[in-house]
């Protein structure tokens, strides 16, 4: 078959993209919810605010923080449950028996997830600028935000793949990824309790998550102001190490062994 020799093919990419959009959860939690939450929070805060300059910075800060929900919902939850469901049905093994190696499926899936997230962020940005009036960034701020989102999404992919491959059951994977989704949102300060108001133990865990810095500090980066990136980088490195190890273990575990 021709696609054996090529990692990315139009047919495989189209297949994986249809797989991504065929999952209703990502439309609800990955597109609808971030837009809805962003507008809802900004509108409710705006009603209590008199000063328009403060509103703009608050709205931008909320916009940047809520953006992290997109990779968490589309990749962590969406890909996680979809992959677990496929594993439960034996679909990846069936694909492998047709000569579609797991690496090929994964590469096309990553690309398909990337395309979907690009579209989701497009809608999110359109809503942000069209409805709540997000402030325009400095080029450096925009580039760093994009870079952070790409890296964070990659980590969410590793985490989702690892969890789904370990559990291999739709229901339990759905439960675990949903819990993580809300834990990340709570610790990231997106659910009403800001980092400063969290108890000490919660702050300890919150400091380990990139989403905390994205939600709390990114306005400073967005506007090109001076910012100490070290804690944020450390949180990315920690999450990257954990998710990378998880992915490595599960990929090695799932390899077809020849004797």
């Amino acid at each position: 078959m021709r696609n054996r020799k090529r990692l990315i093919t139009a047919q495989m990419l189209s297949f994986e993209f249809r797989n991504v959009i065929g999952n209703p959860y990502i439309h609800i939690f990955g597109v609808g919810m971030p837009v809805f939450m962003m507008i809802l929070i900004c509108r409710s805060v705006a009603a209590e605010m008199a000063e328009s300059t403060l509103y703009a910075s608050m709205a931008t800060s909320v916009f940047l923080g809520m953006g992290a929900m997109i990779p968490m919902a589309t990749v962590l939850m969406g890909y996680g449950i979809s992959h677990a469901q496929e594993l439960e049905k034996g679909i990846p093994q069936r694909m492998e028996l047709f000569g579609i190696m797991p690496g090929v499926s994964m590469c096309n899936r990553i690309l398909a997830e990337g395309i979907f997230m690009l579209l989701a962020f497009g809608i999110y940005f359109a809503a942000g600028y069209g409805v709540i009036g997000v402030e325009y960034p400095r080029i450096s701020g925009l580039l760093i935000y994009i870079f952070c989102m790409v890296v964070f999404s990659a980590m969410m992919f590793c985490l989702a793949h690892g969890i789904a491959s370990l559990i291999r059951r739709f229901g339990l994977t759905y439960c675990v990824t949903m819990i993580l989704y809300f834990v990340f949102m709570i610790l990231g300060g997106m659910m009403g309790i800001s980092y400063d108001k969290m108890p000490g133990i919660m702050q300890l865990f919150a400091r380990m998550l990139p989403v905390t810095y994205i939600n709390r500090d990114f306005y400073t980066v967005w506007k090109g102001e001076s910012y100490n990136f070290m804690p944020m980088i450390q949180s990315f490195l920690l999450l990257g190490a954990v998710t990378g190890i998880l992915l490595f273990i599960t990929v090695r575990r799932g390899e077809r062994k020849l004797h």
């Binding site: 078959m1 090529r6 047919q11 189209s14 297949f15 249809r18 679909i91 069936r94 028996l97 047709f98």
Partner: peptide, 26 residues
């Protein structure tokens, strides 16, 4: 090549696209 006792595919799309993806051809 193998036709297993149980063969499952994604239900997110018509089988035409599954066929084209697996075979790498239109």
């Amino acid at each position: 090549a193998v036709h297993m006792q149980f063969n499952e595919y994604t239900d997110a799309m018509p089988v035409k696209y599954i066929m084209e993806a697996i075979l790498g051809t239109r």
